[in-house]
Amino acid sequence: MNGDEEKMTVIVQTIAALLFPITLIFSFYVIMHGHLTPGGGFQGGAIGASAIVLLIVAYGVRNIEKRMKEENLSIFESLGGLIFVVVSIFGIFLATAFLANFLVGKAIFGQIPAWGEAPLNSGGVLPILNIAVGMKVIGGLSAVVMLLALITKEGER
């Protein structure tokens, strides 16, 4: 069973292959700068999932599904949720409460920005939580779209 008949035209494939890395890099930018600029984990994750969905629409599900299993995407999503909960629980032991911002004022991420500055290592645990939610949303939304696209091809097999 080859998936050649479910590809779109060559123009769409070329444009999708050109746009995929740019969109993914923009999504990583939005996730990493979530505590400085508008955006954050959910927004950047939606952009990254839309990059993968662009590939799925342009090249057909089965060609993408050979390279990118939806189980691995699901594991990626669960890893994001695990990071979120573990960082939240560290707040109980290292600070006062669940989800407390225990890194602010400390070594790595703890710089408090002065007026007009935007250092990347500020914000305490917020960048880590942003990355966790971004992993969750990228893995989850693309896994859902990939499964929904696979289930429409199920009857033709």
Binding site: E6, V30, P38, G39, G40, F42, Q43, A46, I47, A49, S50, V53, L54, I56, V57, L141, V145, L148, A149, T152, K153
Partner: peptide, 26 residues
């Protein structure tokens, strides 16, 4: 509200359209 704008552009204009186009293609 640029946060909501980015989320709306990502989810509403791309993911929903892709899911509907996949449905229409099948």
């Amino acid at each position: 509200a640029p946060d909501v704008a980015i989320a709306e552009a990502g989810v509403g204009a791309c993911l929903t359209t892709a899911i509907l186009i996949i449905t229409i293609k099948s």
